[in-house]
Amino acid sequence: MHGSEHKDGMHSTPIDDPRPKLWPRFLGSIAIVGLMVGLMIGRLTTPDPIELQRIETLPDGVAVWFNREPQLHGEIIDGAVALLFNAQGTAQRGELKLANGRDVRWKVQKSDKGLLLNLLAARPLRGEWRGATEDGRWRLQVSLREE
């Protein structure tokens, strides 16, 4: 056999199949459909972000309301109470009076790790905080007193 020319229908190379190759298209479409279904399921099962809903002033502190329980880190730094929440929300500020008539200013600001709540007074403060679920939301109550 010299060359690849036809001689009585026999040669060393097979004849090209004129039909389209459907197997790679089928596998590609199955992969795309699987990816899209996975993205939709992932979107449906992702929980809502944790959001600060409101802040209430109390006679001895503040109550901070969230839609779900956030991660919380709190410290008392040089007489100021600082609470860091892993949540979203808007910057706010306000003022409250303690039972003895002293003014305390509070401020919520955004940080790279979430929201930061600062409570500051003219005299050093001590604070205690506790959270609980109420009415399908999460409430953190911060109780303040002067040193």
Rank of each mutant, 00 (worst) to 15 (best):
M1K: 07
E5A: 14
E5I: 12
E5M: 09
D8V: 15
M10T: 01
H11W: 09
H11T: 14
I15H: 02
D17M: 13
P18D: 01
P20I: 14
K21Q: 08
W23R: 09
S29K: 02
S29L: 14
I32R: 10
V33Y: 02
V37D: 00
V37L: 10
M40L: 15
G42A: 15
T46V: 09
P47L: 11
P49L: 14
I50M: 07
L52Y: 00
Q53M: 15
R54I: 08
P59A: 13
P59T: 01
P59G: 07
G61A: 06
V64A: 05
W65G: 00
W65F: 15
R68P: 00
Q71R: 13
H73D: 11
G74L: 10
A80C: 02
A82I: 10
F85E: 06
F85A: 07
F85Q: 10
G89L: 10
G89T: 06
A91P: 09
R93G: 13
R93D: 14
G94F: 11
L96A: 04
L96Y: 04
L98Q: 06
N100D: 15
G101V: 02
V104N: 03
R105A: 14
Q109P: 02
K110I: 00
K110S: 09
K110P: 05
K110F: 00
S111M: 12
D112L: 15
L116C: 10
N118G: 06
L120D: 10
A121N: 07
P124N: 07
L125W: 02
G127L: 07
W129H: 13
W129G: 06
R130M: 05
G131F: 08
W138C: 01
R139P: 01
R139F: 07
L140R: 05
L140T: 00
L144S: 05
